[in-house]
């Protein structure tokens, strides 16, 4: 009898244990509802707890919730929810904030401003180079450098800064070694839409003449409003194999994110003059968050400032000389920013 009781007890315990470990809700916690209201609230809360730029942008997120939440009901369609969510996110005016809905019926909303496309054409420049060396596909090179015809002015173009720092250590160093006997250089950052801030730091260090602080970054570290990590200090310092001669840096609204932190670093060098248009104005990293209904949203969780504590989020960096190309001019073969850069260097 004792043995029977013992066996029954152990069997019950085993079955109970198996049931316990099979129960997702108990062992793993509950998933939120996938209804429109739940998804909207999750979206709003994710920004409330993680977004790093409310203070910089002076936005009252609670007021924005009060404005948009009454428009959301569980009876609305996916597309209607996407519309309301997009309108709410548009208030952030942040180029690093976007929302995507998967297929079928893929949709993407970008919160940041849009600027005319076609204000830069690499092929126009390539026509003016007497020699060129490239790395990557010929029609879309990752790195391209050469010399302008009938001058001793070098040209260096990077498509993005998305490779690891070691990639740029190798290829930029090689390019600058090849261009070491030029008198001046045009660095074209108009194609750099983003990448790794560490790579931006490495590339800028090849043009640095002194060690200088150029950027401070911090990130949200809890859901509490205004709770950020300590400032992370970014310095640029001269690197062996660097280019010590005058440089014109070309920027435009296509220069974004890591392209902008690169521009911040280049601004520390007095031998660098910046020509072109304002940069895009989206600096912080933008990790992604998943919503209960499977949509994905990207948001800025950092607060990036220059060495003086000034934020250019949503504004962009102003060049020393503002020269704005138009798509019409570029389609007719005219790159006024490049022409200005060449004339500045030829006057030296």
């Amino acid at each position: 009898m004792n043995r029977f009781v013992k066996t029954s007890f152990l069997t019950s315990l085993w079955v109970y244990g198996l049931g316990l470990v099979s129960c997702n809700e108990l062992m793993l916690g509950e998933e939120p509802s996938q209804s429109p209201v739940s998804t909207f609230e999750y979206l709003w809360s994710s920004f409330d707890e993680h977004y790093g730029l409310f203070e910089v942008k002076q936005l009252d997120w609670n007021a924005i919730h009060a404005e948009f939440s009454p428009q959301v009901t569980d009876q609305m369609s996916e597309d209607e929810l996407f519309e309301v969510s997009s309108q709410m996110l548009s208030r952030l005016n942040d180029g690093h904030v976007w929302l995507v809905k998967p297929n079928p019926g893929f949709r993407r909303f970008d919160s940041g401003p849009t600027y005319p496309v076609g204000t830069f054409d690499l092929d126009l420049i390539r026509e003016n180079l007497s020699e060129e060396t490239l790395f990557g596909p010929s029609d879309n090179p990752l790195v391209l450098y050469g010399r302008f015809k009938n001058t001793n002015i070098g040209y260096l173009y990077l498509d993005h800064l998305g490779e690891a720092p070691g990639f740029y250590e190798k290829h930029v160093k090689t390019a600058l070694s090849e261009l070491a006997d030029t008198d001046e250089l045009i660095f074209d950052a108009r194609g750099i839409e983003g990448g790794d801030d560490r790579s931006a730091q490495v590339v800028a260090s090849y043009f640095a003449t002194a060690k200088k602080l150029y950027m401070k970054t911090r990130f949200k570290q809890s859901a509490q409003s205004g709770d950020f990590s300590d400032w992370i200090l970014w310095e640029v310092a001269p690197k062996s194999g660097g280019y010590p001669k005058p440089v014109v840096l070309l920027t435009d609204r296509g220069t974004g994110s890591a392209g902008e932190t690169f521009t911040l670093a280049m601004r520390q060098n007095q031998k660098v003059e910046i020509v072109g248009d304002f940069t895009y104005g989206a600096f912080s990293d933008n990790p992604k968050w998943e919503l209960p209904n499977g949509w994905i949203v990207a948001m800025s969780t950092g607060d990036f400032r220059d060495q003086n504590g000034i934020s250019y989020e949503g504004i962009g960096l102003e060049p020393d000389q503002v020269v704005k190309n138009t798509p019409e001019e570029v389609s007719e073969g005219m790159d006024r920013a490049l022409t200005r850069a060449l004339s500045i260097l030829l006057e030296n």
Binding site: G52, I232, L233, W234, D285, P287
Partner: peptide, 12 residues
């Protein structure tokens, strides 16, 4: 992963 979901520090 940190709360910000970003891992980025200079020279590291």
């Amino acid at each position: 992963m940190p709360y910000s979901n970003v891992v980025s520090e200079p020279e590291k």
